[in-house]
Design a protein around this nucleic acid. Structure first.
Lengths: 287, 287, 287
DNA sequence: ATAGGTTTTGTCAAGCTTTTGTACAT
DNA sequence: ATGTACAAAAGCTTGACAAAACCTAT
């Protein structure tokens, strides 16, 4: 806003506002191409605060120093959308086997936040937490089954049509024995958001099955997930063979600290970040 | 649409619209073969947004930057499920009599969101908006008919089989003279999602027909809708009689501020919320 | 009809009708042997639509483009529905790893047929056929994985919110070792269509997990599925224990010809029919 | 606080083109 | 029926202008 509007909102004359700027540096407005001062709504707060301090008896110079600093501080204390609260609400609902409640929270999330932030701030941390509670024995297997199925249904629905388009094709699946497909779906969604096409094979996919599909689809990338190191080691030989003909990425906690066959990209970070990285790698190489 | 129509809809003179385009790039209309500017309905929104910002005290240049940026920004930081965009897409498709386009958007919505949120965030607001436009004369009767028929077909398809099952039975219909059944269908779907069985009588149902049906079906609840107050008042006497033998709920904007006969539940809120409330009431009473 | 009649019905002068034809191609009348224009009743609609659009403020050129397109669109939108053809189309699309194609067919199905008929005429026979082809070695494991995941995502989306409501609660899951959950989902959907609430535990659920969930949810029925006889036999003992406290139904081809523990309902038919039967049994008993 | 100059923005005008309904001659 | 013509309405571009708001400097 320009100086007139700021004056109206704050009750301080334009001349005085300019004086405060020159003398105390209270405000640092941007300038238009013609030189007019352009203020933000923060500046209104700053000016109001300054007036309050002066009404409280402070000298102008002191009031300005306080007002300039205070608004900076307040800025950091305001969360836009309370993702943390929604995450714990989701967690509670799923623990209670409350499917409608969980769906309602997911609706709210999907309508208000980006897919990526939902994945990396809500869903993936929730899964991680559920896994930890399961190991400590404070979450039951039934809760884990129930929650997985609710989330899986929802995430798969978001992937509807992910095979369509003109982007590079990613063939995605879990290594044999691996049953946790939520991380894989999250990864596939993150790839999809970057323009990839997805062919989804799901949980517990034998490697010769992957090979079969790869022969007929000729994907630009094969993504395999395993949450256990053992799963990766047991598949080491067929992986090596597969890697001779296709570009392969290996993800999941099981892929860490494993000697990957040559040519296999190891993805150790979170799905969203790694999807970005893989997109860069493949994009540079092939396009 | 051409500049004159945009001017009429937005309340901004053609000269000014051209000036805003030249100076701030607020709009980027297509051109006809002869060079005339052709605008979309998005542009109406943009201009309205600009005027709102100016009414809020912003200078034209800043207001334009915000209005143009709002669309850009929405595109960049897209929520996973952009309900607002889908709603306006639906609105555009129906305005254009583009039935396949509308169906595709409904497909996408049904795949990704809960029926409830689709009803309360997309369909019902759309109906409300259509009604408002119709009153202002900016929507034609043909458009309203077309849109109603597409939505009614789709929603009724979702209700297919809603009479089956084990839940309490709701007998639903419109009061005599009432022809807008979409709100009623939405209400019935929300009840169905809560386990009710539905017997659907549709638009413009004489009350003795309702009485007959009620005698043979013994419903746990009769839901009647009227969008006009007059409709409710004219049916006051037979309603009173019906209420002696059955539990009745009265919904629709016509039900507001009306002296309801004793024993009649008046539902003034949106269908989804009221379906929840009614379910609680009846659930407490009977189960 | 000739141009005079069309003019009378549509309220547009013959000269103007000819101008619209020449300029915008709005109508393409047949010609009599003498060269007179011959119109169909569709053309009346087109002209009326054009006038509606113009009344709505659109310029003639734009109105004509919309009117000509809308009638085209409406024509394409009503092909009769051939379930058998759609089923084989679905099968082909899934065999080809063509996810978008499969989704489009599912869209068409869901828009035009009841869920029940889709399940019993398309999805379940398709699964049966896929199993048979797999045994004969004419379908690959990769195809089966891919198809299962597409269908599972779609069916789970249809079940969204199935935990809500006032109906009896069914706790559903696959027996340990059982990985084919599509039949289970179909069964759950058929129950839901009859007013049941569903708590879904998914594939490969340990029986103590089921017991845990049952203790906290107190379901009216527990549904367990197994496609192999071996799965049932191995779980015989814990099943007996579970049956002492809960009403249990056992479904899937594995449930046939097995000596069921006392009190366990054995469901040997197709999911839709058996859902009906179970609803009758439980409905008679409790309501 | 004032003076004198600058920027911003809504409006208008002139001269020409496009669009579109109607009319007329063949 | 066809083709052409015509005129009113609406639109385009360029350019200008004046009031309001804002700038710097004194």
């Amino acid at each position: 806003m320009r100086i007139g509007e700021l004056s109206r909102r704050s009750g301080v004359s334009p001349e005085l506002l300019r004086a405060w700027e020159r003398r105390y540096g209270l405000l640092r407005p941007l300038r238009s191409s013609g030189g007019l001062r352009l203020y933000s709504s923060d500046d209104v707060d700053r000016v109001r605060l300054m007036r309050e301090h002066m009404a409280g008896g402070l000298a102008a110079a002191e009031a300005a120093a306080l007002a300039a600093g205070a608004v900076e501080g307040a800025r950091h204390a305001q969360p836009a959308l309370d993702l943390a609260a929604l995450r714990s609400g989701l967690s509670d609902a799923l623990d209670r086997f409350d499917e409608p409640g969980a769906q309602a929270i997911l609706d709210a999330l999907l309508g208000a936040a980006t897919l990526e932030s939902i994945l990396s701030v809500v869903v993936l941390p929730y899964l991680h937490d559920l896994g930890a509670r399961w190991e400590r024995g404070t979450a039951s297997v039934a809760q884990e089954h129930f929650a997985s199925n609710v989330l899986r249904g929802r995430l798969l629905a978001l992937g509807r049509g992910w095979g369509r388009g003109v982007g590079p094709l990613a063939l995605v699946g879990c290594l044999p024995g691996e049953r946790h497909e939520l991380g894989l779906i999250a990864f596939a969604l993150a790839l999809r958001a970057r323009g990839w096409r997805i062919a989804y094979l799901g949980a517990d996919t034998p490697l010769d099955t992957v090979g079969e599909a790869a022969r007929s689809l000729a994907p630009a990338l094969i993504v395999l997930v395993s949450s256990t190191r053992k799963g990766v080691e047991e598949s080491a030989d067929p992986l090596r063979v597969l890697a001779e003909h296709h570009r392969i990425a290996l993800a999941g906690t099981g892929a860490r600290d494993v000697a990957a066959p040559p040519g296999v990209i190891v993805l150790t970070g979170d799905p969203v970040a790694e999807a970005e990285r893989v997109t860069t790698i493949v994009g540079d190489g092939s396009a």
